[in-house]
């Protein structure tokens, strides 16, 4: 298709195309997670009593295909059970990271104290409490990757009862590599921000990922995915 291929539609500006492409990037990740959550809910609902081994056997291949897919954006993914699903007061973590499928903190499955750290985290707590998908971050993930990441997490159910979450991690670096060239087309001070106004990527060199920014006067704001926005221009950091 050449550049003039729009027959009936008005030609869209490079800026608007940039917004659409970043939106496609984020919603692509969200849709991948939605589908995985639906499959996991169906599997749990159809299974009888669950064991750790059965969970691993179901979750691991899905994670492997996500992590090892060509051009994968995902650095880690897995499932965490709500306490009680596998046994009384017992949670369970089945999470892997990296191309070589490194298992995250499997020792935690034998230690109630360390499992409580996962259960308290925002990316577990919020989807479990609200029954809705959630994006956490960007934040420093000291439990898994030790990287600056966004965690997309989605509740899964056993019939109608909450059973846990599936989630995946995308590094802020990955988003910068893919999103920064698109963001530059929107404006030299355009930024992708989370719902707390914290920068995920910014075209301006004086703003770092993690800085809190505000929209410049007259800037446009576009919704991206479920929780992000693109601001066409931002003010200085900390303003």
């Amino acid at each position: 298709m050449d550049g003039n291929g729009a027959e009936l539609k008005a030609p869209i500006s490079p800026a608007l195309r940039g917004v659409e492409e970043i939106n496609a990037l984020v919603t692509g990740v969200e849709r991948q997670l939605d589908q995985w959550a639906a499959a996991t809910t169906a599997w749990i609902t159809d299974s009888g009593k669950l064991t750790g081994t059965a969970v691993d056997k179901f979750i691991r291949p899905a994670v492997q295909s996500m992590l090892q897919a060509p051009d994968s954006k995902v650095v880690g993914a897995g499932f965490i059970a709500t306490p009680g699903l596998l046994g009384p007061d017992r949670s369970y973590i089945a999470w892997w990271q990296g191309d070589d499928m490194e298992r995250v903190d499997a020792l935690a499955n034998f230690s109630p104290q360390s499992l409580s750290r996962y259960v308290k985290s925002e990316w577990f707590r919020i989807p479990v409490e609200t029954g809705k998908p959630h994006v956490t971050g960007p934040f420093i993930d000291l439990l898994c990757t030790d990287e600056y990441v966004l965690t997309f997490s989605h509740p899964v159910f056993n019939g109608g009862t909450i059973a846990g979450i599936v989630g995946l991690d995308v590094t802020a670096q990955t988003l910068e590599r893919l999103g920064l060239p698109l963001l530059r087309r929107i404006g030299e001070r355009a930024a992708l921000v989370n719902d707390g106004g914290r920068t995920v990527i910014c075209a301006a060199s004086d703003i770092d990922a993690g800085d809190i920014v505000t929209a410049a006067e007259g800037a446009e704001s576009h919704a991206v995915g479920r929780q992000f926005r693109i601001l066409s221009a931002v003010g200085p950091a900390g303003a």
Partner: peptide
């Protein structure tokens, strides 16, 4: 102290602190 590193949002500093 780890939480301070998390608030700083620097992966390298957090790892060094650990």
């Amino acid at each position: 102290l780890l939480e301070i590193a998390a608030v700083a949002r620097s992966a390298r500093l957090a790892r060094e602190l650990l």
